[in-house]
Design a binder for these strands. Structure first.
Lengths: 218, 218
DNA sequence: GTATAAAGTTAGGCAAATCTAACAAAATAG
DNA sequence: CTATTTTGTTAGATTTGCCTAACTTTATAC
């Protein structure tokens, strides 16, 4: 069994992993706001527990065991977010902090009950996939809105790098998951994008925004 | 702010307090299954934080501050139990362990939402009073079933010293809160009691059981 | 291809929460 | 009222998770 602290390291490793599944000590240190030597020694500890591949001066990688463990924590996190929004009526920008705490609860029944009450959802309120009971994620291949071209018609599928501020910004513009969007134009000099939605609403999104929105073509 | 650990000490102090509000180091040590020297030093720490009155070789007592803090933790615990039973459909014997963990969540909104969803309940699923938002408990003066006499008609109001086993025992006999009971006879030699309920059900309860059931006269 | 910068590691220290061993005070029994 | 038992305390060790300071390795810049 992992401690609360160890669980947070595993989750961060999972979330930071690039295509190769690699994470640097430095990135992890920044993400967790914990100094590098502390991270370093925790990695050795998790390596002993066979959750992480650790070799001096090489990038970190979760083992299969570690990936599963992290997946299960993320499953609890995302199920909780979904529960908070769907059952308890919270806004999507209010749920992250609470879910950060509830994800560490040890009780299979509790999360199974949530899952059942929600009708076994596949995605959380931000559009992120919920890992299955074995910790595996069914990767969906969404595109970034920033990669779309003028004329494209897409549906808003997920939000990445969610923060309170960002989610509030989206809500204030009426941008929610499932929304149908048409790309009207893209400025070449700064990548900002003009989109249309809801029949006659028009909005300009900076590249910073469009890179954090994932879409599905319709 | 108190740590998770400190919160558990406060809660135990509150629950163990006798009429004078006093608790011995020994009792606390046994309840928490933590050795006396550890408890002792934690009491000094909580005394510095002004949550406990500590004097060498004297019984422990919560300060007003400590009583309020403990009350608020117990409020979170009991609201959670109620939520698990009423909203999530758990049995009353399944909720204690989960609530032990959720009571430490730091999020006023989360518990306010629960409270609202439950319609601002005054009692938890075991009949224990839920402290108000200031941590105060509205003490209800129930009697022990064991203090009743043959012929008395009462309503089952609360269960004390709840354990899984005990709650399962009650459920298996159809004994639930609110149930109307008539005391048929009491054995003088062992205090066991024959009760009738549900029109034609009769059951014999040992003194151990009747001392843990609180009732209201009807 | 060396000099500098960035990333990673080692060593040693600290606070929280636990323990055991040994001692002191208070309660209890005869 | 002394002897014994129980309760409470002190001292010192351990583990976990964090830190800073100093050093090493790898990457980057010129």
């Amino acid at each position: 069994m992992h401690s609360y602290t160890e669980e947070n390291y595993l989750k961060a490793l999972f979330n930071l992993a690039n295509k190769k599944g690699e994470v640097s000590v430095n990135e992890l240190s920044k993400k967790l706001e914990i100094k590098m030597p502390t991270v370093n020694s925790m990695m050795k500890k998790l390596a002993e527990k066979k959750s992480v591949h650790y070799e001096s001066y090489k990038p970190l990688k979760l083992t299969e065991k570690g990936k599963k463990e992290a997946g299960l924590i993320i499953r609890k996190h995302r199920l909780t977010e979904m529960f908070l929004v769907e059952i308890m009526g919270f806004g999507w920008e209010q749920v992250h902090e609470i879910a950060e705490q509830i994800e560490h609860i040890h009780s299979p029944y509790f999360f199974e009950k949530m899952d059942a009450m929600l009708g076994y959802p596949k995605f959380d309120p931000h559009g992120s996939p919920i890992p299955d009971k074995t910790g595996k994620i069914d990767w969906v291949h969404y595109e970034k809105l920033s990669d779309c071209k003028p004329g494209d018609q897409v549906r808003l599928a997920a939000v990445i790098h969610t923060t309170d501020e960002f989610l509030k910004f989206l809500s204030s513009r009426g941008l929610h998951l499932g929304l149908k969007i048409k790309i009207k134009s893209v400025e070449t000099f700064d990548g900002s994008m003009v989109i249309g939605y809801n029949k006659n609403t028009t909005e300009t999104l900076s590249r910073t925004v469009s890179e954090r929105l994932l879409v599905e073509r319709v």
